[in-house]
């Protein structure tokens, strides 16, 4: 960081509304992006519209020149962290990574202390990823700089929700106004434990799409209906009705990775799931199943993919897949979020 922006970020206890905030309803905690639940369609669209302006490389100004965005990752991540770093770099800023501080017992204090220390160094924003739900909002209460939630426990992963909406809108030719009205989106897999699912549900709903959650009862309980989504156990019945299928990753016990490599049935972390065989039989997106989707329907995945489990390679790499478009969108929406919050 430079001397130039030290006074700028410090001493601004009384926050002033930025032009960006004046044009959106980013309530309630406008300085931060902690989740999408409280955002309405206009707020979501304003991020996506800003992201669209970055499609043209020439339109990008080095607005973060000389400033630092800290990636505070208490939990492992490669692609999200890299995506945030790329976004920062493309805005002319520097990204620094702090990782793994949450490994020992005093997680909470270490975590807050780490965040306040990083802030004291004068960073423009803190991007935080943590194992526990609520950590991003916890840090946001303790620091003055903007906090961007890059995934907190099973709670939210708001930039993932935004990028899913951005990628889907693009694929459906809805990228002009980001109106997803009339579209129906299936989210398949362990929804209850997924921060991606929550944020994506909120984004899709805010933009007018219908959402149906598909999975076994342990992963897609009926109580999800309180999020104003449909719930189904029948992937085969749902697939022909949707415009997009978002396949979630199944998380395996690490110790069973060897068995997985040999193609044996794995123990799955999510309680209530009997076997990979059963899961694959009921919920895997195979080429046969993909063939029964509408002609224009797309397949999405937040990555990393367990090929052959929730998603067959032929589908992941096939014509319906917009997975790499999602990755590209990720950088654009993260640029938009950083630009808006640090602007």
């Amino acid at each position: 960081m430079t001397q130039r922006d030290r006074p700028r970020r410090h001493g601004t206890t009384a926050r002033r509304a930025t032009p960006a905030e004046a044009t959106t309803s980013l309530s309630p905690s406008t300085r931060h992006l902690l989740g999408l639940e409280a955002l309405d369609g206009a707020a979501v669209r304003s991020f996506l519209s800003l992201a669209r302006t970055f499609e043209s490389a020439r339109a990008i100004k080095p607005m973060l020149a000389g400033r630092v965005v800290a990636n505070l990752f208490f939990e492992d991540s490669t692609r999200t962290r890299t995506s945030f770093s790329v976004a920062t770099h493309r805005l002319g800023g520097h990204a620094i990574d702090l990782m793994g501080a949450g490994s020992s017992v005093n997680k909470g204090e270490t975590l807050i202390d780490t965040a306040t220390n990083v802030e004291a160094m004068g960073v423009a924003a803190i991007v935080v990823r943590a194992r526990q739900s609520g950590v991003a909002s916890m840090i946001a209460r303790k620091v003055r700089c903007p906090v961007i939630n890059a995934g907190d426990g099973r709670h939210e992963h708001p930039t993932q929700g935004l990028l899913d909406a951005y990628a889907l809108a693009g694929a459906m030719n809805r990228g002009r106004d980001f109106d997803l009205g009339g579209l129906r989106v299936a989210i398949v897999g362990d929804i209850v434990s997924s921060r991606v699912a929550r944020s994506t549900i909120f984004a899709m709903r805010a933009l007018g799409a219908q959402v149906v959650c598909v999975g076994p009862p342990s992963m897609a309980p009926e109580s999800l209906r309180s999020l104003k989504v449909d719930v189904s156990r029948e992937l085969d019945a749902v697939l022909p009705t949707v415009d997009a299928a978002i396949m979630l990753r199944i998380q395996f016990e690490r110790s069973d990775a060897a068995a997985g490599a040999k193609g044996e049935a794995l123990v799955v972390k999510a309680p209530g799931l009997a076997s990979v065989r059963e899961y694959r039989e009921c919920y895997s997106l195979t080429p046969e199943r993909a063939d029964r989707m509408k002609a224009h329907a797309v397949v999405m995945h937040p990555g990393p993919i367990n090929r052959g489990i929730e998603l067959d390679a032929a589908v992941a790499d096939g014509p319906r897949s917009i997975i790499l478009r999602q990755v590209a969108a990720g950088v654009l929406v993260r640029m938009a979020v950083i630009a808006r919050l640090c602007g």
């Binding site: 739900s133 426990g153 099973r154 709670h155 929550r198 109580s223 309180s226």
Partner: peptide
């Protein structure tokens, strides 16, 4: 265990 725990991811 209810709607709030589901929303909060707890």
């Amino acid at each position: 265990a209810g709607e709030r725990s589901l929303r909060l991811g707890l």
